[in-house]
Nucleic acid binder design. Structure first.
Lengths: 144, 144
DNA sequence: GATGTCGTAACTACTAGTGTTACGACTTTC
DNA sequence: GAAAGTCGTAACACTAGTAGTTACGACATC
């Protein structure tokens, strides 16, 4: 499917900010997060920018600026993050509209649409079951 | 996520072959299916080739050749098709391995791995609930 | 005013998916 | 055994999305 790492990196960033704040710091910089995730600060800023639009994080500018959580991780689910960073559907329809004169070409899109909607709804439900607090717990549970 | 249309086109092809066979024909050609799906015959042959590896369809060569179903559509689910045409995982990990010296960098991959596996298992379960016979029924149920 | 960080544009590189052409392999038909 | 039709597959081009990188203005603190 050519999966991407956006949800993974976003979860990484949120977990990092949370743990950093628990150590007493107010904000985390994209530089620090990028270093932990082994990527570029701009990639982090872009992702966190989308999370900010969704109301999950806040940012400050200027000296001593950075990112902080806008809500408790217990009230933040993977669905919130998913919807913030993954706009499109899971499965695509035909690129070119199929032959509408053919029974299959005519009926296939509504048929698959209905099926896909049900599946995506289930996916959302599953993502909504996992909070970012769960993620942090699992992260800290990794054996050393 | 940059979704693709492989599952959609594969379902289209299977539905088309089935209905064509119900009209008394033995095999369907990639040319006919491509015409209905409004794509190129080679695209259809590639996809059906993967379905053949999975034991869902059969092909004949030579004059009067083409594709036929290897099983009843009632015994064929979207999961069978999905697994045949979509090898990779739904969500990707970091491209470059995160900083193993950081608590988050160290624990994030196993954490997300476990979560993703559960979600993909649910997705599989949902896909397994829909047979290709269901798809054909929905296709024929489209209002004219 | 100097400094540090975000916000964002611009560009490159890479990959996956799709469409297309071409041609050999194979089987039927005559 | 030659012709014809279809699969099987390689090769290539095009597109879109993701990610990485550089650059620089905007902004807030000191």
């Amino acid at each position: 499917m050519s999966a991407n790492s956006r949800l993974t990196i976003a979860a990484h960033a949120l977990a990092w900010i949370s743990l950093y704040q628990r150590q007493g710091h107010e904000v985390a910089t994209s530089e620090q997060i990028a270093s932990s995730a082994n990527t570029n600060p701009v990639v982090i800023r872009r992702l966190l920018g989308e999370l900010r639009k969704a109301g999950l994080v806040e940012s400050r500018r200027g000296v001593g600026a950075g990112w902080s959580l806008a809500r408790e991780l217990t009230s933040m689910t993977l669905l919130d993050v998913y919807e913030a960073v993954e706009p499109g559907p899971l499965f695509a329809m035909h690129r070119a509209t199929p032959d509408q004169g053919c029974v299959v070409g005519y009926g296939i899109q509504p048929a698959m649409q209905g099926i896909y909607e049900g599946i995506e709804e289930t996916l959302r439900h599953e993502l909504a079951r996992v909070t970012l607090e769960d993620v942090v717990r699992d992260v800290l549970a990794a054996p050393r």
